[in-house]
Simulated scan of single mutants.
Amino acid sequence: MLSIGEFSKICKVSTKTLRYYDEIGLIHPDQIHPENGYRYYSITQLEKMLLIQRLKAYHFSLDEIKEILAWEEDQAEEHLHVRLHRKKREIEEHIQAYVSTLEQIHRDIGRLEQGMPVMSFVDHIQVELVETRPRNVLFIRQKLSADDYAAGYGTYFAKLYERIATETLTLQGTPMTIYHSPEYDPAGNDTEFAIPVAEAVKGTRNFPGGLCARSVLKGAYPELTAVYARLRSWVEEEGYALTGAPYEVYVTDPIKTGDAGDLVTEVYFPVKKK
């Protein structure tokens, strides 16, 4: 048996943390001395503690780790395999976000070194008036929180593509997202995922055409906020009024586009002259 101090030293986790893990039911001492309350751990518990530390390093929460440890032994490996793949995707998304942030910082440093304001790029975002045509779209409309967006895009577009394949529908364009909420709410926003198709079947609707202010972003999605700000300013400056929900058209597929800098997104604001 190992004292709590020895167990702590081997696993490089404080005795305070071990006591907390005991309180929340993550890992209990194998024995507690009835007279003095000393805690002892078995040699076999070292491997369990190492697994806990490894899963923590993978950014699993303590609640998630507790759930993993509670799985039946004959199912544990299979479930863990699924959860590790999911966590791997999450970490890859975070890494890509950091890469995009570093690239943005690099550009801002370059502007400052050239004596330009950091936000000067907004004024150089190009805006044009275009007349769009009506489209028939297969759609899913959901209320998504800020945390749901990244996963939601893949989930709902995948469902739409699956139905297109199953029903052999004819693609007429690239995916779109329409933002119906009148204001941003971190708790949930009215979001429509749509893909243009030829056939008018259940689950499709007419997406009207008309006059739009359009801007094209070549770069990572976080930069879309600046595009929206520029478009809204342009609409006001040029004497137009908004007539509908803004929407995005994804010219490139993020799954097939390795470099976020190569992503191409069109942003549309339906407008009319005041």
Rank of each mutant, 00 (worst) to 15 (best):
V235W: 06
I24T: 00
T166N: 15
I27K: 05
V118N: 09
H124P: 02
E64N: 01
L46W: 05
Y20E: 03
V264P: 10
T101Y: 12
R89Q: 12
H85N: 05
D253F: 09
S14E: 03
C11M: 08
L138G: 06
R141V: 13
Y40I: 11
K12R: 15
E238N: 12
P196W: 08
K16Y: 08
V122Q: 13
D108P: 02
G25A: 05
H33Q: 09
P196M: 06
E103D: 15
K159D: 09
G25M: 06
I27Y: 02
R133S: 04
F269M: 04
I105F: 04
A194P: 01
Y179V: 07
E103G: 15
F207M: 09
L242Q: 06
H124E: 11
L169H: 01
D22I: 00
A260M: 13
S14Y: 05
S3L: 11
S8I: 06
N36I: 09
E73N: 05
K56C: 07
Y221L: 15
M176F: 13
K272I: 09
I24V: 02
F121I: 10
I105D: 08
L144Q: 05
A97I: 06
T155K: 12
S8Y: 04
R111D: 11
Y40E: 06
E93Y: 01
Y38T: 06
E6W: 04
P34N: 07
D190L: 11
